[in-house]
Write a protein that binds this DNA or RNA. Structure first.
Lengths: 339, 339
DNA sequence: CATTTTTCCGGGAACGATTGCGTAAATAAA
DNA sequence: TTTATTTACGCAATCGTTCCCGGAAAAATG
């Protein structure tokens, strides 16, 4: 049943040439006569010859594949990023191997191990919300694996990074709530370890201060699992509801948390925005179909994937060690509910 | 900058052994003495030796990777399937290469070509809604590529297939509308070429006939691009609204179409379900957060991915040509809106 | 015509692993 | 002691390519 693809050897034998000649002819080398080239090319085309990528990989010591680690692909934000990644990677002849951490540290370590064992040429990663220890990434990086961080970056590792202006995005969203008259604004945030959490909470606080409101620590709740466990979000919201005076609005720092809050508020029959306004980061395409109209901070996810991949391929294909690392910051967009 | 992994040769040289001995020691061959084995194993562990998967692939003529083609990963249904696929594939040591057809025929052909050029060991595919011609799949299959179809299967190719009981699922959903009193029930369906479309429309019609209602062809609209283009859905819904007497409910045959209808109805300010009831297939996790409570047909997507992968790996690892092909049919679940 | 330079092509090693076969030494059987 | 059998390892081919050399024939030069 096993199909045997045609090799360069088959062509050589059939045309009574050496494999070297065939190889060179196919690569349009100058040391092969035009006549021979044509013969080889025609015959190869007839047999639909495709050079074996595995043999090439072995020779070049490159797998032509890159690994991607995200929290979960079922998340619109990440699936849009992946689309951006694939658009660039495939065009440049790279295969993308996608894996998910499910916001779990051990899973992230295991999956990285797995990707390394498949000898990826480089890695794109948005670390899990449970990731605090960076040893697994550091050691891979030190042993020569090119890495580009996107979305959730880390400070301790010096390499290219791509993200949005989280501070500004959070600032805008919070300001929007303030402009609408809300004053007691709570924040349901991701794990405290994440770079994006710090930045987004920072923007949130800055907006409050802009309105001379002193940020209240009891109004900021962190979700270690990034909302992967609904109970976590439910607990956060419940605690917020118990605070006196009760907050009137929530700013959620991620997609999963925004929809998570929505879910919990619905479950507890708390009208949005009448009893509790809600805004947050989200790239969900269904956001405007939700039962309550909410304003969200949208990220240029597709573009983020593209940019990150371009930077990674630069690292991979660079001859000399790269020393000059870039941190690209894209802009978010505040999207209002449709009428 | 390039990291050089340790090879079997390095170990052999360091231990003054031949590569064959090292290889055999690592594989715990009986023809290597216990003493030698221990030396090799210890040294290999110290250097964190990992056999080069590419060299192995070349030798075994197996890439240990499988290709997956779906319409789009941003669709909950497909991303859940992919999770199921990965769970089985990774456990068995296979890498999953995901690609998307975006419901486009040419893209599907190109992406299949690409996967083949990466020498995948097998393929899992849910064909695009635009796929009518099956030549690309047939020729791959004939040249020996193991294929398992899931979700959207095709009749002309004899191999394993995994799907849900589409007929029953559609029947249940339509029946539910009938039981609620709706009588003019329209159907917004996927491309007419798809197996699932025929089956689901069949179930829809059967339920109507159960209630002695003759299916009205003007109430069935097909969307060639499976809802990837919202205009397509909008046109379908507009046409339905123009039919006299106007239908009072819509049954949509896929995830994208269900949310698409929702979107269009909202845009045209048609209240759901007061002015127009809606039900359909959907695996979206946000479905119960939508502004209108709707009942949906949910598929065991994760399980479908698992089953399909198990069948594919059976095909791949079978020594003899497989003749006995299975068609596994899973059950759908009718999910009602939360209170 | 003799020599140098091109042109064009083949031999064979290499990439990193596995594996059939051969064989020296050690052990067992005759 | 001689022969047969194990035991434990090395040699070399193989997977499909690329590419460094080396060299014969053809072309250009003196």
């Amino acid at each position: 049943m096993k199909y045997k693809a045609t090799t360069i050897k088959d062509i050589a034998k059939a045309l009574n040439l050496s494999t070297s000649t065939v190889s060179r002819a196919l690569r349009d080398s100058h040391e092969i006569s035009a006549a021979t080239k044509q013969t080889v090319l025609e015959y190869a085309a007839k047999l639909n010859f495709q050079p074996n990528p595995i043999a090439l990989s072995l020779k070049e010591r490159k797998s032509h594949s890159i690994g991607v680690i995200v929290a979960e692909i079922a998340n619109s934000f990440f699936s849009q990023i992946i689309n951006g990644i694939e658009s660039v990677a495939n065009e440049k002849g790279y295969t993308v191997i996608i894996s998910q951490s499910h916001e779990n540290f051990e899973k992230e370590v295991r999956t990285l191990q797995y990707l390394a064992s498949r000898s990826i040429d480089g890695l794109l990663i948005s670390v899990s919300s449970a990731t605090n220890d960076l040893q697994h990434l550091k050691s891979m990086y030190q042993s020569g694996l090119p890495i580009v961080f996107f979305d959730r970056t880390v400070e301790e590792i010096q390499t290219h990074k791509v993200m949005v202006d989280n501070y500004q995005g959070a600032y805008n969203a919070t300001l929007h709530l303030l402009e609408q008259g809300f004053r007691r604004i709570a924040c349901v945030a991701n794990s405290e370890h994440l770079s994006i959490t710090k930045e987004r909470v920072g923007g949130y606080m800055a907006a409050l201060q802009q309105y001379k409101i002193e940020p209240d620590p009891t109004l900021i709740k962190y979700c270690f699992h990034g909302g992967m466990l609904l109970e976590e979000v439910e607990l956060a919201v419940k605690e917020l509801l118990a605070v006196k005076p009760r907050p009137t609005a929530i700013f959620a720092t991620s997609d999963k948390l925004t929809t998570g809050c929505m879910r919990v508020l619905k479950k507890h029959k708390i009208a949005v925005p009448a009893a509790m306004a809600l805004t947050g980061f989200s790239n969900s395409e269904l956001i405007h179909l939700l039962h309550a109209p909410i304003t969200v901070v949208q990220q240029p996810a597709y573009e983020m994937g593209q940019v990150a991949t371009e930077l990674l391929l630069q690292l991979i294909e660079s001859k000399r060690p790269v020393k000059d690392f870039k941190t690209k910051m894209l802009q978010t967009k505040l999207v209002f509910p449709e009428k």
